[in-house]
Amino acid sequence: MKRIFRVAAAVTIFAIAGSALGAAALDQAQSLINSGQYQQALTVLDSHLKQVPQDAEARFTRALVLVKLGREDDALKAFSDLTRDYPQLPEPYNNLAVLYAQRGDYEKSRDALEAALATHPSYATAHENLGDIYAALASAAYNRALMLDQDNGVVRQKLRLLEQMNTLPGEAAPAVSVAPTAPTTAPAPTIQTPPATIASAPPAPATTLTPETAEAISQAIYDWSSAWSDQNVAAYLASYDPDFDPGDGQTRAQWESQRRARVGAPGKVEVRVINPQIDLLSADRAQVRFIQTYESDTYSDQVTKLLELRQSGGQWRITREMVL
């Protein structure tokens, strides 16, 4: 069965500061890609990223070039790093899903696509790919059923229908566009997935949010954002509960080490919390949904964020964090 998955060829960058040098490097790399000179394009991008390591568009383009070169493990790491550093962008999740699908790991592919749709519910490519993944999972389940009951004619018919639906004559590999007007054929890629969502505790119907509790929770959120803006790493980390779950496979120690480096690194940071909406889940648990804006010397963005908090020792601290 030939299954066609669509790879995102461009990344939507939300207000990421650029430069004439960065634009020139990307234009040069894109020209080399269009002419099939992938190794040369990779050299240009690597040189640029040594100077501007957090240029998301350049990193995304580099990951696509790695796919073109057949360096699947490297492409996997590149897209995975993008989902970690820019969780608001759906395209890296989508391409991770395609790469996992090429390896036959449909469960991980499904999770990556659900993560893409959590950040961008109207992302049509991810919806299409998710439909194909569900079909692949169904096919695997029907095949297992047929192994257990080879005389089951209903299962055989369902498998035939899936084969007809998922076979497209004349197409053998996922189509990758490295430019909007220049579709090409990509080698099979590789993948990793972040969790699709963060499960939330159901609200307790009898719990009432008092003005005092709302003020305490709001203060905890603003103290967290202020510590981040001030690059006060100790105060920033103190905003998180000891049982905080990074949610991306990292240990707490790994996450703290990463956040220490990133929170303290830029020359200037400003984080703002806009329109926080508080839902009290129980006497000591709450959710806060808000718009977060972030600005540094080299990067800015705006995302919708959900924090889960727990009260302990009279303090509200973050137990889970999610970009919606």
Rank of each mutant, 00 (worst) to 15 (best):
A25I: 09
A25L: 07
Q28T: 12
A29N: 07
Q30I: 10
S35G: 06
S35F: 02
G36V: 12
G36W: 06
Q37S: 08
L42E: 15
V44C: 04
V44K: 03
L45C: 05
D46E: 08
S47C: 11
S47F: 08
H48Q: 06
L49G: 03
L49C: 01
Q51H: 04
Q54F: 08
A58L: 03
R59V: 09
R59G: 02
T61G: 04
R62C: 05
A63E: 02
L64I: 14
L64N: 14
V65M: 10
L66R: 14
V67K: 02
D73T: 15
L76R: 10
K77P: 01
K77R: 07
A78G: 00
S80C: 07
L82K: 05
D85S: 14
P90T: 15
Y93T: 05
N94Y: 11
N95K: 06
A101S: 12
R103M: 04
K108T: 11
L113D: 02
E114L: 06
A118R: 10
A118L: 05
H120A: 15
H120D: 13
H120M: 10
A124M: 03
T125R: 02
T125W: 03
A126E: 02
H127L: 02
N129H: 13
L130F: 11
I133V: 12
Y134S: 00
Y134T: 07
A136F: 03
A136V: 01
A136Q: 15
A136P: 01
L137W: 05
L137C: 08
A138S: 15
S139N: 09
S139T: 11
S139A: 08
A141P: 04
A141H: 05
A141Q: 13
N143G: 00
N143M: 13
A145S: 14
A145H: 07
L146A: 15
D149T: 13
N152W: 05
V154Q: 08
Q157A: 12
L159Y: 02
Q164A: 06
M165A: 05
M165H: 07
M165W: 03
T167I: 01
P169G: 13
G170D: 07
E171P: 04
